[in-house]
Design a protein around this nucleic acid. Structure first.
Lengths: 322, 322
DNA sequence: TCACTCCGGTCAGTTCTTGACCTCAATGGA
DNA sequence: TCCATTGAGGTCAAGAACTGACCGGAGTGA
């Protein structure tokens, strides 16, 4: 603890929690002379962390942003917040960073004290139904276990429900996690069937690291994402939903976010286009925009809307049951 | 760089990216002898980071979870993912950790290289409509600036639109950010009007740190959250929505997550109860459960459902416009 | 059994670190 | 304009820490 290394870490930590620190305070906290503090600051600078200093009355040190990320020194609560945030992101709430989020998550989880992990789990229940967008929820814990397996070359055992409903237990050498169209897939070498397989993470139960390590095999083709794409023989039916919404484009855009392209029309209404596998999402969007609209296509959407609309009316009209 | 401190940081970083590292590899990377590596590992242990080692063939070192969070050494992509995740969480997607998320976010943002900050901004557009739940979106950048102002005692200037629509420019000494019922409030001392004020963060534009620091005043009462609550004279109307859904409780529960309590009924259907300010959310839930239901209450929900249902039917029936 | 890996003691030379002391250089308020 | 405040950094000497080399030991899994 009285180490130089430990002190440097504490110094970094202090600099991250408060922007300005008078040198005298820092020196006192670290229990060294001010001269040594200045030398420590220098050391940090030599390590590439830009520490600014301002002189005069109310001067002090401040950690600026530099060229590289410094070690993040977070307290318990912050760590929990980070893990929860990453879980949400990994769940597919934000496009394009699922894989990285899982990687970061497994890193954070791995070093997180167990008591904090429990707090994260407790909060997981609060995950907002961004899973709304349709499709089953992926268990963030499962993702973490799998990600660690991939990273650390550890065999993993789990239960799996195949597409035809058949249940089995698998022992695999995990290779890569792939996020594709709101779904997670695990590409792995099945150690019992001796072949490469892809598993849908949402169909897999209780993954467990066995602790046994293995040497990574080379995936034929090399590209895991491509591998998954090829295996998905049955491409999901894709619809292109086109709607005219009688509301300003800004309003529509705010609700649908990135999930659709919104174009302005001359008469102040807007055209919304989105590609989907099912109609749940567009209906949700329409319900929450709260404006009149016309369906341009496809015809199936009309049926779906009619169905949903009637269901809502039935529910509204139904007598009180209880 | 050839420092011991720097080396320890690099060692920690290595241990965080891969679970197992053979000692020889680590020694080579750090350009020290294996003996010194062992000593470094010891040092880490003395600092409280639990490093496990396994012997025999394919042995190696591994960073376990310990009693406290170690410094997180993240790469660029991971840092971006963390920031994006925190932003989402701060936006109110998950209940109960908004404040901590903002604190963590401001910490991360502060030390983040500018180029990464740009990437985070670019991804912000992708925020999923969790804002769905209603209410205006809060700008995460604004939150960050304000949080840093509070933490570092820096005066902040911003534009503000009062409830009556009047615009003004304010110069304040920020005191605390409070998240209350899906909204963010800033409690601050107005430096020009010489008094304590609360500002709704979503009505405030372009907050900027002035760089001028101040000495925190004492907030009357001390509790910022309480202060905001007192100022919010108009409590939002609350409805208790109760529904009977003709679907198994598990199904319903999966969709609504934590946002409602779901009870099993004898006949296989379920009762769903939730407290809301507006009906948008329950309607979305109903639409996406995809099952028949009856409204138990309140009556206003029936009206809302009828309206939405009819709107959907109109949209479905409407002639193609373009 | 054997190969591989981590463990840790000892030693001596080298390097680093520390606090004390001092002079400068900005800064911002009086 | 002056002055108190606060960071910058040179120098020195004593002491502490670090390092690599070399060693025998011990656990692990094939």
């Amino acid at each position: 603890m009285a180490n130089t290394s430990g002190r440097m870490l504490r110094l970094l930590s202090l600099l991250q929690t408060h922007r300005y620190w008078p040198g005298s305070d820092l020196a006192e906290r670290l229990e060294v002379s001010e001269r040594t503090l200045r030398r420590d600051i220098d050391r940090l600078r030599e390590l590439g962390y830009p520490v600014d200093a301002s002189r005069g009355v109310a001067g002090g040190y401040q950690l600026r942003s530099g060229a590289a990320m410094p070690p993040l020194l977070v307290d318990d609560e912050e760590a929990v917040a980070i893990a929860v945030g990453l879980r949400t992101a990994a769940g597919g709430a934000i496009d394009g960073i699922e894989e990285v989020s899982v990687r970061a998550l497994s890193k954070v989880i791995q070093v997180m004290p167990p008591r904090l992990r429990r707090r994260v789990d407790a909060l997981q229940a609060f995950t907002v139904p961004a899973t709304f967008a349709g499709g089953p929820t992926v268990d963030a814990t499962a993702l973490t276990v799998l990600a660690q397996g991939c990273r650390d070359d550890e065999r993993i055992r789990f239960g799996y429900t195949a597409r035809d409903g058949e249940q089995s237990t698998r022992l695999v050498e995990p290779h890569r996690l792939v996020s594709l169209g709101r779904r997670w897939y695990l590409v792995a070498w099945d150690a019992e069937k001796h072949g490469w397989r892809t598993f849908r993470v949402d169909r897999l139960t209780e993954p467990r690291a066995t602790g046994a390590r293995f040497r990574q095999r080379e995936l034929p083709g090399g590209d895991a994402a491509e591998f998954v794409r090829q295996r998905l023989s049955v491409a999901p039916a894709q619809y292109e939903v086109v709607l005219t919404v009688h509301a300003p484009a800004e309003v529509v855009e705010r609700v649908v976010g990135q999930w659709a392209t919104v174009d302005v029309r001359d008469d102040g209404s807007s055209t919304m286009t989105m590609r989907v596998d099912s109609f749940e999402w567009p209906v949700l969007v329409l319900a929450s925009v709260g404006a009149e609209f016309d369906v341009v296509g496809p015809p199936e959407l009309r049926d779906y809307l009619r169905e949903t609309g009637e269901r809502l009316l039935r529910g509204a009209a139904a007598p009180v049951t209880s």
